[in-house]
């Protein structure tokens, strides 16, 4: 064996490694989060991002222009029932370019889903993605549907806050 072979082999190893490193450079299109989780956590603790149905109905009746209701359910559900004036952006497609530009405008967006959890998660996702002015409608479409009496009259009854205990806790503690 002569030396050139060894040099060649060394060169191949180097090239392979370099190639490996650089091929992995071409990653798919990534949406980087801008807001760090810890900052977001502080924000969640210190301020609310919920809008209760009462306030939402006031907004709607006064026809505030700066608010947009965003329905993140699928089109079928949207066609079935939706809050008047709401825009349908199905959550599956919320990261698509067309909607991203829509979500970028300065208006206050109120997200809702059937209940509030999915909307809340999507809101967190978008906030982490650098969007602001996002709120979540408590109770979601389900609550809205039950409590809407006529076009402009909204009767708030029952519980819309997901985090409110819906049963008597003393029943549980009494059994100890």
């Amino acid at each position: 064996m002569k030396r050139p072979y060894i040099k060649l082999l060394g060169l191949i190893i180097v090239l392979l490694t370099v190639g490996l490193v650089f091929t992995s450079l071409q990653t798919s299109k990534k949406y980087k989060f801008d807001t760090k989780a810890i900052e977001l956590h502080k924000e969640l603790v210190s301020s609310t991002h919920f809008i209760d149905p009462q306030k939402a109905s006031e907004i709607l009746s006064k026809q505030h222009d700066e608010y947009i209701f965003v329905d993140i359910r699928n089109p079928r559900e949207f066609d079935n029932f939706h809050i008047e004036g709401a825009v349908n952006v199905p959550m599956q497609q919320i990261l698509d370019d067309q909607f991203i530009s829509f979500l970028k405008n300065d208006k206050t967006k109120v997200l809702y889903s059937n209940e509030s959890i999915e909307a809340d998660q999507i809101r967190l996702l978008l906030t982490q993605f650098g969007y602001s002015n996002l709120f979540v409608l408590q109770g979601g479409a389900n609550y809205w549907k039950e409590n809407m009496i006529s076009k402009d009259v909204f009767k708030s009854k029952g519980e819309y806050d997901d985090e409110k205990l819906k049963f008597d806790i003393s029943k549980l503690t009494a059994t100890e």
Partner: peptide, 18 residues
């Protein structure tokens, strides 16, 4: 867990991101 799912899903999202 929390009373509902809001707090827990928020916590999940944050830990997920970290």
């Amino acid at each position: 867990y929390s009373n509902g799912t809001t707090l827990s899903s928020e916590a999940w999202m944050l830990t997920k991101q970290r």
